[in-house]
Amino acid sequence: MKYCAFLRGVNVKGTNMKMADVCQVFKEAGMKDVVSILASGNIVFSSDKNAEELKIILEKAMSEHFSYDAFLFVKSHEDTAVFWNSIPFEKNEDFHIYGFVGMPGVENVLMEEFQKASQAENEKAEIVNNIFYWQVPKGNTLDSTFGKVLGKKSLKDQMTSRNVNTFEKILKKME
């Protein structure tokens, strides 16, 4: 079965790694057809194991090889397609749209945090199919009140986000 591993915290805040090295770690952990998408930690691969087993195997392999606490989320091809097909916002060149991959229930935590934060004009959030989506004006992602919340340590192992354009690239590689 085809999967995508979404790594958290790769190539930010001093955790730098080459995707070729990450792919090699995945291969050594028994994954097949391994390929990276962008430098932000999206690894497409094949395996006969289920997503829960793969998460444990790959976090251990990544942690040991790179000497850091690896956090990743493994989604099947079908699950990844749901992320792409559930986007609630119209594409607009003035906005970034992010989808969040994470632990079950994290979408509700994110919505609570979003509702507490002050928002820029036309900054929006919605939950569709248990997936949290966030639309933010370009240039405001890191400066927004909600963007700052996303860096909280308490959320570190709960989720990671990707621009929705990344989901499209990942799906094309999975097919």
Rank of each mutant, 00 (worst) to 15 (best):
S154F: 11
L72T: 08
D48W: 04
F132P: 01
K75D: 05
L142V: 12
K156D: 07
I56H: 15
N42S: 07
C4E: 01
H65Q: 15
V22H: 04
R162C: 01
F73Q: 03
I131W: 01
D21K: 10
L142W: 12
Q115R: 15
L150T: 04
F71W: 10
K124F: 05
M31L: 13
N163G: 07
S67P: 00
S118N: 11
L155W: 06
G41H: 00
L54M: 11
T141P: 10
V82H: 09
K60M: 08
H96M: 07
M31P: 13
I56R: 13
F167K: 03
N165R: 15
A61Y: 09
T80E: 01
Q158M: 12
V22P: 06
A70N: 01
I127R: 07
V136R: 00
E126I: 02
S76M: 05
K116A: 11
E121T: 04
T141C: 09
F100S: 00
F95K: 03
S161M: 12
Y98Q: 03
F26G: 00
F95W: 07
S63L: 14
T160R: 03
H77G: 09
K172V: 03
D143K: 11
Y98F: 13
Q115L: 09
K32I: 08
S76G: 13
G102L: 04
V35Y: 14
F73I: 05
K116N: 08
K156N: 12
Y68T: 10
I57E: 12
N129L: 07
G147C: 06
V44A: 00
F6N: 00
F89H: 05
M17F: 11
V106K: 03
Q24S: 08
D143L: 15
H96L: 12
D33F: 06
K49F: 07
G99H: 03
S86R: 11
V106D: 01
F26H: 01
E107P: 14
L58E: 01
F73D: 02
V128K: 04
E123W: 00
G139H: 07
N11M: 07
F132H: 02
S118K: 13
S76E: 09
E113I: 09
E126G: 00
N42P: 06
P104Y: 11
N122M: 11
S86I: 11
L38E: 04
S46D: 08
K124T: 00
V34D: 05
T166V: 12
C23S: 13
A29C: 12
S76N: 12
E90M: 12
K138D: 06
E78M: 13
E28S: 13
H96F: 15
K91F: 06
T15W: 04
K124I: 02
R162W: 02
A125V: 03
T145M: 15
F89Y: 07
I87Y: 05
V22I: 14
M174V: 07
S46M: 12
Q135L: 05
K13C: 08
T160C: 11
D69W: 15
S67R: 13
E126A: 07
N85A: 15
K18Y: 10
S154W: 08
I131L: 03
T166I: 07
F95D: 02
K18I: 11
G105I: 06
D157C: 06
Y133H: 03
M17L: 10
R8S: 01
N92M: 06
N122G: 05
G30R: 01
G151L: 12
A70W: 00
V25Q: 06
H65R: 13
A125F: 01
G41K: 02
G147K: 02
D48N: 10
Q24Y: 14
D94H: 14
K91V: 04
